[in-house]
Amino acid sequence: MSVGLAQAMGLQFTQDWKLAVRSRSDWANPMIFFVLVITLLPLGIGPEVKQLAAIAPGMIWIVALLATLLSLDAMFRSDWDDGSLEQMLISPHPLPMLVLSKIAVHWLVTGLPLTLLSPLLGLMLSLPEAGYLPLIVSLFIGSACLSFIGAIGAALTVALRQGGLLISLIIMPFYVPVLIFGASAAMRAVQGFEYHGLLVMLGGFLALAVAGAPFAVAAALRISSEG
């Protein structure tokens, strides 16, 4: 059955989207985790407004990062278990493009909801007003970077049973630049400095990740299915 590349990517996207929407835990659990950890924060360090406000941007970013990490293992796991991954591997279409569709869905059901939720958490941590816009924009771009980079880890560990923790271990160092620029943007906005340059850098990271990560993911998926 001959299908064009665009249609093949569309089919992959639709299937993943339907699956993600139907399995509530996929998109709901990271969000619950996100809110829960932020709730624990004042309980751990005290409810003092000034202190909370100071760490709010960094803390929200770190928890968003952790929530994304937790969701990564599921990215290719079910495809691996039910044989869909084999079907992707033997598809006439380039694997990196099919992977691109999958990562896009992953971002839509984890990164985007976390971004939309972040103002609420800013409110809970009494984030100063100037911080909201840069926080949302930086999470919007940055969480996409997290999905792309994280997909490499998910693909490398899909053949292993103890995936979850190992993904965090191998991927977290690569999250360092994204975290630095994302959190710093919001932090600097709160302090009244210029922050647009940092967001532009985040955009640059995203461009690099979109261009490079799908190829690494495709190579990793092929390696995982050997043996």
């Binding site: 299937q15 079910s78 039910d82 084999e86 079907q87 033997i90």
Partner: peptide, 29 residues
Amino acid sequence: AQSLVYIGHTPGIKKALSARENLHHYCPA
């Protein structure tokens, strides 16, 4: 790849989707 159909031991059927949706994924035409 265009001339090949492979149905493996785990045949790539998504349990959360219906038979129609699964079949449509592989035979969109």
